[in-house]
Amino acid sequence: MDESSFLLGRSSPGQVARKRHSLSNKRRLAAVVAVVMAVSLAAALIVLALPRAWPSPSYPDERNEFSDLAARKGEFKSEPATRNEKVLVELFVMSRCPDAVKVEDVFSNVVPSVHSIMDVQLNFIAALNPNATYGAQCEHGDAECRGNIDELCALKHRPDLPSFWRFLSCLNSHFDDIGRDSDLSLKCANSAGLDTAAFLACCSQSEGRSLLKQSVENALFAGVARSATVFINGKLRCVEDGGWRDCPGGHTPSDFIRDICMAYKGSTPRPSICAQYKPVAPVGADI
């Protein structure tokens, strides 16, 4: 028996009419719901079947980050012209090495002429050893390590390059006492016009050992094991190791003065001695 027959058999005529009307409304609502669901399903199937016409979702933060980097590319320029423009002379040496003294003696005749356009870096040849007295093993013993520290501290606390070279020449003139006589170092520092308080503090405290460690690391990084080796602006220039070698430009003071003058490209006026040498022009520049 269907629902209408069941209701009609148990109700009065008025009740039957009302129940028929309610049943009709329910059937119409069910039909509407069914139609809406069918239409929604059909629409969903159509959308899935069509190719996507909109772009993939983007991530604004990431997109903007990379866009900003691309936009800023080209804004990063080389260091300004006010940077240190001096020609760098690197000496790979040992304080108690006769070959090092020989090279340093040559440069004692170079520095007075071109010190305004050059700088010097000492890189000491040794083996790092944290258990050693000075944090390194030097070929000529602890006295050499101490001599290395004395020279590094004098270079660090010099008022100018000629002052340091006066200190170095003083030390080398008492070669056998380098690193063995602290009074000698103090005497040389005083006569050269160094700040003796800063010099002594450096030599006796951690600063000197840190300078030695850094200088040894520089030599190891450069792969230089012969004292004395000269680099100018990062390029091998000459070696003195029981005799001069690998010195195609010569090894006299005038040869080094010439090369320093020619390598200089800074804005500071060149020393008068450089007038006889034509400077090397930067790539693309006219002189």
Rank of each mutant, 00 (worst) to 15 (best):
M1Y: 03
D2L: 06
E3L: 14
E3M: 12
S5Y: 04
F6C: 05
P13E: 11
G14N: 11
Q15F: 08
V16M: 06
V16T: 10
A17M: 07
R18I: 08
R18E: 11
R18C: 07
H21F: 10
S22T: 13
R27H: 13
R27I: 15
R28D: 06
V32M: 09
V32T: 08
V33F: 10
V39I: 09
A44H: 04
V47L: 13
P51A: 07
R52D: 07
A53I: 10
P55F: 03
R63N: 13
L69F: 13
L69P: 04
A71M: 12
K73Y: 14
G74P: 08
A81C: 10
T82Q: 05
R83K: 11
N84K: 12
N84P: 09
E85P: 03
E85D: 14
K86V: 08
V87M: 06
V87Y: 05
L88M: 14
L88P: 01
L91F: 09
L91Q: 01
F92Y: 15
S95Y: 00
R96S: 07
P98R: 01
A100F: 01
A100H: 01
V106N: 02
P112F: 07
S113H: 13
M118F: 04
N123K: 15
F124K: 00
I125G: 04
A126I: 05
L128Y: 05
L128D: 05
N129L: 13
N131T: 13
N131A: 15
Y134Q: 05
Y134F: 14
G135K: 06
A136V: 13
E139R: 02
G141T: 04
E144G: 01
L155G: 00
K156D: 03
R158L: 09
P162T: 02
S163Y: 04
F164E: 00
F164Y: 14
F164R: 01
S173A: 09
H174E: 10
F175H: 03
D176S: 15
G179V: 06
R180A: 10
D183S: 11
L184V: 07
C188R: 00
A189V: 03
A192L: 03
A192F: 03
D195S: 05
A197E: 12
A198Y: 00
F199G: 01
L200W: 09
L200R: 09
C202T: 05
S204A: 15
E207P: 11
E207F: 08
E207W: 07
S210E: 13
Q214K: 15
S215N: 09
N218S: 15
A219S: 15
A222L: 08
A222H: 10
A222S: 15
S227Q: 02
S227M: 03
A228S: 12
A228W: 00
I232Y: 03
G234E: 12
G234W: 14
K235C: 05
K235W: 06
R237M: 12
C238N: 06
V239A: 07
E240C: 07
G242W: 09
G242A: 12
D246R: 11
D246G: 12
C247V: 09
C247G: 06
P248L: 05
G249H: 14
G250P: 06
I260L: 13
A263Y: 01
K265Q: 15
R270W: 11
S272V: 09
A275M: 03
Q276N: 03
Y277V: 05
P279A: 10
P279Y: 08
A285V: 09
A285Y: 04
D286K: 07
D286L: 10
